[in-house]
Measured scan of single mutants.
Amino acid sequence: EVTIKANLIFANGSTQTAEFKGTFEKATSEAYAYADTSKKDNGEYTVDVADKGYTLNIKFAG
């Protein structure tokens, strides 16, 4: 089991951190699914992958 950390960075400057656990593939998939659901309210996003994929910096356009 691994933990994927997602740092969500919103257009207004606020941030949120979420953690997803499971296999690398499952946790990563859940992090992207979470970003997709947040996209409806926060606009399109880009992802900067860090820490060999264990940290995702997800920046929303607003």
Results as ranks from 00 to 15, higher is better:
22 G>P: 00
8 L>A: 02
35 A>R: 00
9 I>T: 12
8 L>G: 00
62 G>N: 09
35 A>L: 09
19 E>S: 12
8 L>W: 04
24 F>K: 08
19 E>R: 08
29 S>A: 15
2 V>L: 06
10 F>V: 02
27 A>S: 04
41 D>Q: 12
49 V>M: 08
56 L>V: 05
24 F>R: 07
2 V>W: 05
40 K>M: 12
24 F>M: 10
45 Y>Q: 01
61 A>M: 14
2 V>E: 05
10 F>W: 08
17 T>K: 09
47 V>G: 01
18 A>Y: 15
20 F>K: 00
12 N>M: 05
59 K>M: 13
56 L>M: 06
45 Y>F: 07
53 G>I: 02
19 E>D: 07
59 K>R: 14
36 D>G: 05
50 A>C: 13
11 A>I: 09
38 S>I: 15
23 T>V: 07
59 K>L: 12
25 E>N: 08
39 K>W: 06
27 A>C: 06
52 K>A: 14
45 Y>S: 02
3 T>D: 02
3 T>Y: 06
56 L>I: 09
42 N>H: 15
22 G>N: 06
29 S>K: 14
22 G>H: 03
61 A>K: 13
29 S>R: 14
60 F>V: 01
19 E>T: 13
4 I>K: 00
31 A>V: 07
34 Y>I: 04
58 I>D: 00
46 T>R: 08
33 A>S: 09
36 D>F: 07
62 G>I: 08
19 E>A: 09
32 Y>R: 06
16 Q>C: 14
42 N>P: 03
33 A>F: 08
30 E>C: 13
39 K>L: 07
54 Y>V: 04
50 A>K: 11
59 K>I: 15
47 V>T: 06
48 D>G: 08
54 Y>W: 07
24 F>Y: 12
37 T>K: 15
49 V>F: 10
35 A>H: 01
12 N>P: 03
22 G>T: 01
6 A>F: 03
30 E>A: 14
35 A>I: 09
52 K>E: 15
51 D>P: 02
57 N>D: 05
13 G>D: 04
32 Y>C: 06
28 T>G: 03
11 A>L: 08
13 G>E: 04
57 N>P: 00
19 E>F: 15
43 G>T: 04
24 F>W: 11
44 E>T: 10
29 S>Y: 12
37 T>L: 15
31 A>G: 03
49 V>K: 08
8 L>V: 06
25 E>V: 09
54 Y>H: 09
22 G>M: 02
44 E>M: 10
49 V>S: 09
5 K>H: 09
4 I>M: 03
27 A>G: 04
19 E>G: 04
18 A>E: 09
49 V>C: 08
51 D>G: 05
28 T>Q: 09
27 A>Y: 01
38 S>C: 15
26 K>D: 12
26 K>S: 14
10 F>T: 03
5 K>P: 00
24 F>D: 02
17 T>G: 06
38 S>K: 15
54 Y>T: 06
25 E>L: 10
37 T>D: 13
13 G>P: 00
42 N>E: 10
52 K>L: 13
4 I>P: 00
62 G>L: 08
12 N>L: 05
17 T>Q: 10
22 G>W: 03
17 T>H: 12
38 S>G: 10
6 A>W: 03
45 Y>N: 01
45 Y>E: 01
24 F>N: 03
57 N>K: 05
35 A>V: 07
24 F>G: 02
59 K>T: 14
43 G>S: 04
30 E>Y: 08
12 N>K: 04
46 T>N: 07
7 N>S: 06
9 I>Y: 14
15 T>G: 07
2 V>Y: 06
50 A>G: 08
46 T>M: 08
28 T>I: 14
59 K>S: 11
41 D>K: 12
58 I>H: 01
51 D>Y: 04
21 K>G: 05
58 I>P: 00
51 D>F: 04
